[in-house]
Design a protein around this nucleic acid. Sequence first.
DNA 1: TTAATTTTTTACAAAAAAAATAAAATGAGC
DNA 2: GCTCATTTTATTTTTTTTGTAAAAAATTAA
Lengths: 161, 161
Amino acid sequence: MSALDDELDYQILTLLQKDGRMSFTEISKEINVAVSTIRHRYINLIEDGTLKIIGRVDPNKIGFNAYASILISVKPKSYMNTIFEALTKLPEISFLASVSGDFDIEANVMCRDMEHLNELIGEKIHVLEGVFDTKTNMYMKIYKFSQPDLELAKLSSKQNE
Amino acid sequence: MSALDDELDYQILTLLQKDGRMSFTEISKEINVAVSTIRHRYINLIEDGTLKIIGRVDPNKIGFNAYASILISVKPKSYMNTIFEALTKLPEISFLASVSGDFDIEANVMCRDMEHLNELIGEKIHVLEGVFDTKTNMYMKIYKFSQPDLELAKLSSKQNE
DNA sequence: TTAATTTTTTACAAAAAAAATAAAATGAGC
DNA sequence: GCTCATTTTATTTTTTTTGTAAAAAATTAA
């Protein structure tokens, strides 16, 4: 791929990042390239996993009022994998990752209310073998929730292709 | 809105959550309702902010290799607002919220590499008046990154409409 | 450099979907 | 039962997508 090719991908990604339903026709008008080219590029971006078009649902609007971060300390560490497996299945967990620092795992959870959150921690998380300690912090107000900035990304070359 | 109406909204949201580009025609076939109904519902969901269709770009694929959580302690607290204003503008920050617990603010950042992250913390965050202390933890491996579970949401009534 | 090969972009026609409009159905409140 | 407002539906026109194939550009090897 040449530098110019990537530029086209970035332009397509930039537009679709904002409006995932923008038609190929409109995109092609916006960046002056044939519709079929846009479509080819689009299909490639989807197929290699760079882009995914999703409907993002506002948690507040559908009744999730308790958004929290649960930090988990695992002992012994040999339980890490089974704990990740179990946690991945919990529908309340929207983000799950291993982290550096005082704890081993961070799980972000969306619950209906405090009762639901409390129940989740006590009955679904603390019961897992290997969960040594947890620390829960509430997200009180969300100020920003955005996508990766493509302008910043441009400064580096494409990775993991 | 009646109970059945909400059920239809949930069905539409469930489908679009998975594939944001699914055509109204296909949705209408899937849930046996006229295409025009689907479109009306869709427009309402978009307009009241419940749903937004976005293209999600995989950070790794575009060269972001350092994903971290930066916890910030603010002193005196009167600086909170100006700090939030300043942080919101930083393109590296993809998530920004006030949190309960030992720190006041959590910012999740996507950086190209450690150098970029280090620079961000030192030259963009620690320089802000009122930033008393920070704690940075790296997200090492992401196991799950999903949308709010609509099945769970169904158990509660719609809020904030 | 040239020729062959692959990749990328483009054009075009048929099929499908979206948009706009108006009509019918439903339901809440009186 | 009637009225008003909302929701669903049907229909027609316009636009978009899809599939195929050809042109152009880039890459590779001789």
